[in-house]
Design a protein around this nucleic acid. Structure first.
Lengths: 231, 231
DNA sequence: CAGTGGTCTAGACCACGAA
DNA sequence: TCGTGGTCTAGACCACTGG
């Protein structure tokens, strides 16, 4: 979680960890199983245990992987960066200011297309205090959601889902009529209580739905977000 | 899961289960821990293990508990049954027909109020083949979601979340303007691959959002569905 | 105070799959 | 082939808490 071990780094095997922590192998195994579930490590017999290469974003959070979302349905994915600003002076609202603990943020506006039709408009803030490399990253060709998933581990996130009528700006960007119902997903992500990123994603209501299939314990079996009405 | 043990029924203790299944206590304990996570049983030291009194609907699915949703915010909850029909001849669309395997269904339309303002319009189908008692249940005063949670265990569910503009009927029932953005939650619930219920819930977009806070493994820490703009 | 669950240990056998 | 993880056993000590 600290980033000390890069993705792909091999961890000590269970016997070594037994010795290191002076405990039984089953105790080690329980902890490791939990880390597998959390997506932080991957385990292969004979090969060993490794820090996950990509943050296996949990199904519920997999929304940001727009490219896969689109291409898996045979549509063509395109991405465009609309705006990029570094905000050192914080002219943010109080709640957002608190989330980023007053530090500098990178503000991005992006658009995701499916077959040349815009299907997601994204406004994102990234903490530069928490993610130093973000300022040098090239977001003009690759979406920040993907980049963050691959580079920054996270320990907690929240989201909020709502519906709203498109105002003039959203309508213009998403190429829908003013007043069209849009799905809004707002998400915040933390690493050890430090705010990493905050994003608002707007989807045309007739084009995108969130879906999941799950068990009583809340474990998600499959995610079934859907693009509709693609021509 | 079969319903053979009523809620509150006490299960054999771990030593008895060891003997019954000829396995070690740790193996029993692992299984039981899983059932606790799944919300099917509750365990208390010295007292024993019991079938859960209420299906502890997982956070992600807790949407149906409208009463708690409303009253926990200091608002007054009211419920109204708009329509009740038993459909034996199945004039359902193909997908719905398949879900209920052609059996008879109970169709309900309900409205949930917060402080006398409608905030959720619900269209629900319940399989009478799977839930026999449903036909005798009194849904004129108590919402079907709550009743089902208390009476029918489930093993799997799916939901779909979208946004749509209110049509004339929805606008009338929810007392919003035609075209107002609404949040739509569709949910299906199974017990051992048998379809139990299917529901569509409409919320005024300016009044209700879904929220959750969760860990990378998808485990939900807290649910934070929100009622807004109540006066 | 004693029955119950929570959790650990030490050891074992096995399945897998990379070397 | 054999190092590694997956999973089980048998036994132990302890923390609760209800009777």
């Amino acid at each position: 979680m600290s980033g000390e071990w890069q993705p792909g780094h091999r961890l000590p095997n269970e016997h070594e960890l037994m010795a290191q922590y002076s405990c039984a192998r089953m105790t080690v195994n329980k902890v490791m199983s939990g880390l597998v579930t959390a997506g932080l490590i991957e385990r292969r017999r004979r090969a060993g245990t490794f820090v996950s290469r990509q943050q296996t974003d949990s199904a519920i959070l997999q929304i940001p992987n727009m490219r896969e979302e689109v291409t898996s349905r045979g549509a063509r994915y395109r991405y465009r960066l609309l705006a990029r600003t570094v905000r050192t002076h914080v002219e943010l609202e109080a709640e957002t200011f608190e989330f980023f603990q007053g530090g500098p943020v990178l503000e991005l506006e992006c658009l995701h297309y499916a077959d040349d039709r815009p299907f997601s408009y994204e406004r994102r803030l990234i903490s530069l205090a928490a993610v130093h490399h973000a300022e040098e990253a090239d977001f003009s060709h690759f979406p920040p959601g993907t980049w963050l998933m691959e580079h920054v581990p996270w320990s907690e996130a929240s989201h909020r889902i709502g519906a709203l009528n498109a105002d003039a700006e959203i309508a213009r960007v998403l190429q829908v009529a003013v007043g069209e119902a849009c799905l809004l997903v707002e998400r915040r992500t933390w690493r050890l209580r430090e705010g990493i990123t905050q994003v608002s994603q707007f989807f045309p209501g007739d084009l995108y739905t969130l879906g999941a299939r799950f068990a009583p314990d809340g474990q998600i079996r499959t995610r079934t977000n859907a693009l509709k009405n693609l021509h």
